[in-house]
Design a binder for these strands. Structure first.
Lengths: 118, 118
DNA sequence: TAAACATTTGCACAGATGCTCAAATGTAGA
DNA sequence: TCTACATTTGAGCATCTGTGCAAATGTTTA
């Protein structure tokens, strides 16, 4: 952190330019938070299942993922807090869905690229 | 995990269909791994800086992010292992770059969507 | 009201993560 | 060879995460 390599001066322009063009700390934290939400198998399964089914309740998702209702509920809270899923209450059930078309599109794009390259 | 809610039978079709259409476990783990790599502020900064500058050495990235060379190196290893960045050795320096056009495109798309919606 | 059941919440704990520090490794030039 | 320096690596540590359990909360129906 305090250390600065000797090549620093040569590269100073590049460094300053890159630093200047980097989005603001806040935006980076937001974006990282968003990717982080997708970066967990359980949460990704939830999102993929919702992408497929449109709407599913907590217990459906528990059955699909074979994880406890509690585990799913904890993860749904994270997705809900980050505005990645929305929900609707219907009697005893709570139905979750992808929050908007952007999430759907982004998920689809990402998966396409992954299947192409990796 | 062992618990199954009573609504299960009604929803059985939806559950089975969603389960069937879910990508294989392996693919999901891969995709989650990929998103996870982007889901950390330090790694995301590295990638954004590389997107901007094209090519940067470890010590440049340390200067840009204001983190220790060691911390950056540890994170670069993760990005390298996951084939998200590639590198080229030049004397004492090691220059890193985004691994392929897909990564660049995906990053760009994701950031666009984020800035639109969030 | 009570009973049944879907969901959420708080706690606990094992395992993962991200950083620093110090040492090791690699590379170029004197 | 020795020295300088860029980078990597491993250990240690504090913190964060993901899950199950048990209890709490909500909602419907009898």
């Amino acid at each position: 952190m305090t250390e600065v390599c000797k090549v620093y001066e040569e590269h100073l322009d590049k460094i300053l330019e890159a630093q200047a063009k980097l989005p603001e700390e806040e935006s980076i934290l937001e974006a990282a938070d968003f990717f982080d939400a997708l970066g967990n198998p359980t949460r990704l399964k939830i999102l993929l299942a919702l992408m497929e089914a449109g709407e599913l309740c907590t217990c459906d998702l528990s059955a699909i993922t074979k994880l406890s209702v509690s585990a799913i509920s904890h993860q749904l809270r994270i997705l809900k807090d980050r505005k990645i899923v929305a929900y609707r209450k219907d009697g005893k059930n709570v139905f979750y869905r992808l929050d908007d078309e952007h999430i759907r599109k982004l998920l689809r794009t990402a998966l396409e690229h992954l299947s192409e390259v990796r």
